[in-house]
């Protein structure tokens, strides 16, 4: 294997690892949009709060990592429910632009609140996870862990959606909101469960991202736009499409960044997104009608 092939392989593997986390990020947003038909513009800010929760639990209160992660997931899940009950539910009958603006308002509210409460300093867990050296390639242990946990999280959500009646109802309501309520389903209950699930996924993402990134009040801007674009690329509300789109995006970023600067990977990814919006505006896996 030539030295260049090793770099390429390393980039491909890192792309897969990044893809797993991006897929997890987009699943939460997609789930909420698919079921409730509202885009949580402030989704990444929930992740930011989760990262702060991890920081305080682990660094300040010295909770064991697994316990901190569990508390973080539950806390952000509760925040998801609060977001739904306080902001989304009263606006369900309103024009979509109002809902979008309201969650956009929550984004700035959370950023400002975090700035006041936590300050603008970058904070981290102070944990340095080792880097694995395999066949001349460097693979970050944090990324490997994040990938594995993201995959487990997604499998659990998948099983929940497939094996339980509540999950089946969530899939059904994502497809046809009107009929579902007329079939005897209390949609408010399904919405609250979905919001808890979406928040929980944001909480899991926070646990994984805090291992790789410092937390600060504006860290949501690092993940928010890309998560949203992945959901759109996969077809908003299409869970499978979002999964595929996450890996496509991650590989473009990772391999694109290999040949030029890292930032170029993002340039390629966003250019690809714009091009795809012309070619397949309904999303990668959209059925042709």
């Amino acid at each position: 294997m030539g030295i260049f092939d090793v770099y390429l392989l390393e980039a491909l593997i890192n792309g897969v690892l990044l893809g797993g986390v991006l897929a997890l990020l987009s699943l939460g947003l997609n789930l909420v949009f698919g079921v409730i038909d509202v885009v949580w513009i402030c989704y990444a800010e929930l992740i930011m709060l989760g990262m702060y929760a991890m920081y305080f639990l682990s660094r300040v209160y010295h909770a064991p990592m697994v316990l901190a992660a569990a508390i973080c997931i539950v806390t952000v899940g509760v925040l998801g429910v609060l977001l739904h009950v306080v902001v989304i539910a009263p606006l369900l009958g309103a024009a979509p632009i109002n809902q979008l603006l309201a969650t956009g308002g929550v984004l700035f509210f959370l950023q400002s609140a975090a700035t006041i409460l936590f300050g603008i300093e970058f904070k981290n867990l102070g944990v340095r996870l080792p880097v694995l050296k395999v066949a001349g390639m460097f693979i970050s242990y944090a990324r490997l862990l994040a990938f594995g946990a993201a995959l487990i999280g997604m499998v659990l959500v998948y099983l929940f959606l497939r094996r339980t009646y509540t999950g089946t109802a969530i899939r059904a309501i994502a497809q046809d909101r009107q009929i579902m309520t007329l079939m005897g389903v209390d949609s408010r209950r399904i919405y609250v469960i979905t919001s808890a699930l979406g928040g929980g996924l944001a909480g899991l993402a926070a646990c994984l991202l805090v291992l790789q990134y410092d937390v600060h009040p504006f860290v949501g801007l690092t993940f928010g736009p890309i998560t949203f674009l992945i959901c759109v690329l996969g077809g908003l509300g299409n869970f499978g499409g979002g999964f595929v789109a996450a890996f496509v995006f991650a590989e473009i970023i990772s391999v694109g960044g290999l040949y030029l600067d890292l930032e170029w990977g993002y340039v390629f990814a966003f250019a690809f997104f714009i091009a795809m919006m012309f070619v397949r505006p309904q999303g990668l896996l959209a059925r042709r009608s």
Partner: peptide, 18 residues
């Protein structure tokens, strides 16, 4: 208006459950 992403039985079971 059946749910195409659900199986036939799932379609009916949902109604039976809820």
């Amino acid at each position: 208006r059946p749910f195409h992403r659900l199986s036939l039985v799932e379609n009916v079971v949902l109604s039976g459950f809820y």
